[in-house]
Design a protein around this nucleic acid. Structure first.
Lengths: 191, 191
DNA sequence: GAGGCTAGTGTCAGTCACTGACAATTGACA
DNA sequence: TGTCAATTGTCAGTGACTGACACTAGCCTC
């Protein structure tokens, strides 16, 4: 995994072949595909940790908190602890650089968005559970999560385009955008 | 394009080879790839029309309308006219069935979300233009569009899972979800 | 009317992601 | 020592995609 991420961040995802990854750790290509379903999967190994951390953070939020507030709190909590959790798998900076590769590689960005959509479905079900609602009849759980997820995406994307890519700056950028979504959805915008 | 969509909807996207598409219209595989950059592109030909229709609908909205109201109005306007516009390319029901294939095929869903993200960037720039704002300094254009886009996605996804898949039901479902997003983002939910 | 230019197409060989079948290796355990 | 299971390698094949090259048909020019 580390070898793959290093190759991806150094040479780009598209210019890295599975054979190169396999050779870097002296196994056959066939063995690579026994551990990873496809080339994309290895690229998202660190993301996986971050996503499940976020979900866990939502579950840990106090039960009496309102849905949007719980999501808001969970994403900020998660950014605090994701760094250490991921660091046990891959070096911190490798993870951050890989995030930029994902954002700038069309095939990976597409897959990233699909995985995010899956995560959002899980989040919506958790919100429905917290509120004691049936997700198939009440649209609100999916709607908060969808609106919320869109905002977090904007933060992540802008962060990826920046120079100073640190965990703290991402947390700050996310908080900033969440704080301004109310004004953005307001009926009239002031200058 | 029609042949491809028919094969995709009949046999599934993954179980349709480019050779089969090419053979169906008596051209070589090489010729297929001269008209479509890849196998995915042909699957989105009808979506392309729908998306540019939606963008055009936003541009046509009265200049004094508030951002969220303009997006809201544009999506409902667009659903009214997309049907006819697409029908000039492919039969209506083929387009609708293809939408379901996209939603249920992971590779296509991923690409669809990526294309939607691209469209949202264009929408955000148009909102910024309408409001006379600089999109690089003011986060609000991207934030409304992101929140709005998330909600429309939920409608589209649920519609794809339904049985009665008509253009009107999609329009109705979209309107329904947009009408309830306010309540979903409210501080407290009532039962 | 010959020659040349262009657009559209086919063929072929090659790369890369991925898969199924089968054989070889190793370590644990009876 | 024989056996079993887990891990790996090899090999052949499929399918998406690309680059190079040749062929054809229509059209323009001299």
């Amino acid at each position: 995994m580390r070898s793959a991420l290093e190759l991806f961040t150094r040479n780009g995802y598209d210019h890295t072949t599975v054979d190169e990854i396999a050779d870097a750790v002296d196994v056959s290509q066939r063995t690579f595909f026994r551990y990873f379903a496809n080339k994309e999967e290895v690229a998202f190994a660190a993301q996986d940790v971050a996503e499940s951390h976020f979900f866990a953070a939502l579950v840990d939020r106090p039960a009496d908190e309102a849905p949007l507030a719980a999501l808001h709190g969970a994403v900020l909590d998660a950014w605090d602890t994701i760094g250490e959790a991921v660091a046990q798998l891959v070096p911190q900076d490798l993870h951050l650089r890989m995030y930029c590769v994902i954002e700038s590689t069309p095939a990976l960005l597409a897959e990233h968005l699909r995985r995010t959509a899956e995560l959002e479905e899980r989040l919506a079900r958790e919100i429905a559970r917290r509120e004691g609602l049936d997700i198939d009849t009440d649209p609100r759980p999916r709607l908060v999560v969808a609106a919320f997820g869109g905002v977090v995406r904007v933060a992540g994307r802008l962060w990826g385009e920046r120079q100073g890519t640190s965990m703290e700056s991402l947390r700050g950028l996310t908080a900033f955008h969440l704080d301004h979504v109310g004004a953005a959805l307001a009926e009239r915008w002031d200058r």
